[in-house]
Design a protein around this nucleic acid. Structure first.
Length: 272
DNA sequence: CAACCGCCCTGGGAGC
DNA sequence: TGCTCCCAGGGCGGTT
């Protein structure tokens, strides 16, 4: 499932094929995604030149002169660059046909993703983007910020760091991983995290995301593979999905519980 | 306002 | 082997 590192890696992978290309047309085969694909997508984007490929949270932003495409990969989405005569497969829902004989192809079996757009002038106030918290790798996402924001919050710290209003891009996998590395129990009330705990958690969130992005840069380099899987890199996961197996650090059995309707993994030997 | 829960969807693994 | 069942996930929107 694409988390922030995969989205960032995707952005880097597709950017060279998109920049300064014109969009010839947009072909929608399956408009029923997380939200309906706008019917006028082709009308709006045909002829638009791509000036920038950026990311905000887990949204990919493909920016033209007047409009910006907003793409979210959901949990099973992927983007790849294919030659313009390649046949779409079952879950290839949308094509952005480029002027360089290539297609940016959106695939998403579970259709939790979305493809929307905004006028450039309204992008920052778009309903999906307006209320997002800081990027996790920004300096504004600091121990100071986390400490202040959590003081009156009774919610479990894991749920807190997964709440996009406070910080974006920390998904279920990396939330468990970062909390394990920081030695903090996922169910601990956010307000109970010490100043020192905030320091550690901030550091580990940044570390786990950064190293995953770096890993993605080396293992997820082929975005022009037509039939292969998107090839999301396998993580060196410490606790996620390892229920019952020994903790690499202390040897205790990794445990799991449901928190905020999400499976959560932790080690009670090294997390308090 | 904070917290919580339902919902959208389908591939794939588990269980029978 | 083949069927059915149920889980996984992000994030919005409604309810408590």
């Amino acid at each position: 499932m694409p988390e922030l590192p995969e989205v960032e890696t995707t952005r880097c992978g597709i950017e060279p094929y998109l920049l300064n290309q014109c969009i010839r047309r947009v072909a929608v085969r399956q408009p029923s995604l997380r939200w309906p694909v706008p019917q006028d997508l082709d009308e709006v984007f045909a002829g638009e030149k791509i000036l920038k490929v950026s990311r905000r949270a887990k949204y990919l932003l493909i920016e033209g002169a007047s409009h910006t495409l907003i793409i979210h990969l959901g949990m099973s989405g992927s983007l790849r660059i294919v030659l313009n005569d390649s046949e779409p497969q079952k879950h290839d829902h949308l094509d952005i046909v480029l002027s360089n004989e290539r297609i940016l192809r959106f695939r998403d079996p579970r259709r939790f993703g979305c493809v929307l757009y905004s006028e450039n002038s309204e992008l920052s106030t778009h309903v999906l983007l307006a209320n997002l918290g800081p990027e996790p790798l920004d300096d504004t996402f600091s121990a100071d910020y986390l400490f202040k924001q959590t003081r009156k919050r009774n919610v479990a710290i894991k749920n807190f760091i997964m709440n996009g209003n406070f910080v974006v891009g920390v998904g279920n996998i990396y939330a468990s991983e970062a909390l394990h590395m920081a030695g903090i129990m996922p169910g601990k009330a956010a307000r109970r995290i010490s100043r020192d705990g905030c320091e550690r958690l901030i550091r580990e969130i940044k570390t786990v995301l950064t190293s995953a992005i770096e890993a993605g840069g080396t293992t997820l380099k082929d975005f022009t593979n037509e039939d292969g899987k998107p090839g999301y890199f396998s993580q060196q996961l410490q606790v996620y999905g390892r229920s019952g197996e020994p903790c690499y650090r202390c040897g205790d059995s990794v445990r799991s519980r449901v928190l905020g309707q999400r499976s959560t993994f932790y080690c009670s030997g090294c997390q308090t």
